[in-house]
Amino acid sequence: MTRLLPHPILTPVLTVIWLLLNNSIDAGHIVLGLILGWAIPVLTIHFWPETVIIRKPLMLIKYTIVLLFDIIMANFTVARLILGNPDRLQPVFVKLPLDLNSDLAISLLANSITLTPGTLSAQLSEDCSYLLVHALNETDPKSLIATIKQRYEHPLKEIFESC
């Protein structure tokens, strides 16, 4: 089973991407997409560093919805800050201590931080113990860290790592 279908999630994702790329749902394209979706994970199995285990799929969907909402809010926040007086901005660097261990969860957290209001992940320390976050306009770094931890890091920890 694991040899024949090493990535059960990757196969449908690749099939859907193939169908979107061809912009059609003909039977022929579905078959070709399934073959590609099966062959690519089998051929590239050695390049995948770790197997991805999603422990709570429902939580992932909820996280995605929260993230999409935050992205839209982020755009209005940043647009307002850009249109305002640039001299009045108070950018700060904040060190965010990390509780996550898996590489995938950390990179997803970094991506989420960049896409959400007024923050941008700048650097990950060598030992993955903290993330350097740049905030566009923030006067209270402590509450920022608390918000990120509660809103993004905690769900990610539950989804990808056993507690």
Binding site: I71, L83, P91, T114, H134
Partner: peptide, 28 residues
């Protein structure tokens, strides 16, 4: 939003603040 993102590129003072405009506004 695309316009505002590029406006941020033009108006803001240093690279780190400039990074915010294109990554958010332009993406949406």
């Amino acid at each position: 939003f695309t316009f505002i993102g590029s406006l941020g590129l033009l108006r803001l003072k240093d690279l780190f603040t400039r990074l915010h405009g294109p990554t958010k506004a332009t993406t949406l």
